[in-house]
Design a protein around this nucleic acid. Structure first.
Lengths: 163, 163
DNA sequence: AAATAAAAAATTAACGTTAATTTTCTATTC
DNA sequence: GAATAGAAAATTAACGTTAATTTTTTATTT
């Protein structure tokens, strides 16, 4: 799980956060940079409770409310992305330097798969022009049943992408 | 709000529910048909609390838990669709005979706009074949900023589609 | 450096939803 | 039609998240 990020990434995301905080006249607290670092040294999806446990297991003293508040801030700064995969539990992932992708969720085992398709951008452009909006984020989820499961009665996609 | 549905629609959706209940060996309770009727005599999006209030204002005695449980059942029967527009409050809408559409959400005023694009089906087909799944539902949301608001500082899209 | 005002963190309470438990009702058998 | 077992409805408790309040910290002024 704990995956050390490159020094460049660390500096780049800290710079983005610093700029965002200065631009919006927010304070540069130690908690904010600790949370950012924790998130960026982790791969794949995570939820708030998981992040809380991860940080508790290390030196950090941080409350859940601070995580909820600051993940919102990181969301606005474009440093994390939020997902709602049907369930009533929000999942997050880091956003910096990660190429755009969407998700397909297995309705039997809840595993999440990623895929890319450039046509989503064409749809986005159509919607923007038709409704006169500028899209800053999109979310596309497919909820699906495994074809193998239908045939064999077992749900075993070894090549799960995330979670 | 309260919009009388045609007799044909009423019969059709009741038939779908009856068949679904029989097929899955569930009971045909009065609550289930009351909830279905209430949902189908309403246009646009709604949440559980709103449905609860609507039914309380009429003759019906029904608990919130029953609404939560049965909306899940109607979801499985393909009679309603569930949306999560970023906020932590689920929105629903009837599914029978309503053509496929997706949503764009204004980040300033939370209004929801609908649009259609056939290309989403091509993306779906691609994902299905690549990952070997059969998609039974998708959700595509664009989160966007109003161009007029950016220019004039006011957020007033009169032609809002839903809610 | 001390005093201060404002902002953020922590704590607590509230809300929407889900899960567990109890009560009521359905529908089947006698 | 009465008795019964199982299912669904209602109630209650728990969970994830958001909002409100209190405490702590930041950073600015003196």
């Amino acid at each position: 799980m704990g995956d050390k990020m490159t020094q460049e990434t660390k500096e780049a995301v800290e710079k983005i956060l610093t700029d965002y905080l200065e631009r919006n006249k927010h304070r540069k607290t130690s908690e904010r940079f600790a949370i950012l670092n924790e998130i960026y040294s982790h791969n794949g999806h995570f939820d708030i409770e998981g992040l809380y446990v991860m940080m508790k297991n290390k030196k950090y003293r941080v409350s859940r409310a601070t995580l909820y508040n600051n993940i919102e801030l990181l969301l606005e700064a474009g440093l994390v992305i939020k997902h709602q995969f049907g369930k009533n539990l929000a999942q997050f992932e880091k956003a910096y330097k990660f190429k755009q992708h969407d998700h397909l969720i297995c309705s039997d085992c809840e595993k999440v798969f990623e895929f890319c398709d450039p046509r989503i951008m064409q749809i986005q452009k159509m919607a923007e022009d038709m409704l006169n909006f500028d899209v800053f984020h999109h979310s596309l989820n497919f909820f699906a049943k495994c074809r193998i499961l239908k045939q064999n009665g077992v749900c075993e996609h070894k090549k799960s992408v995330v979670k």
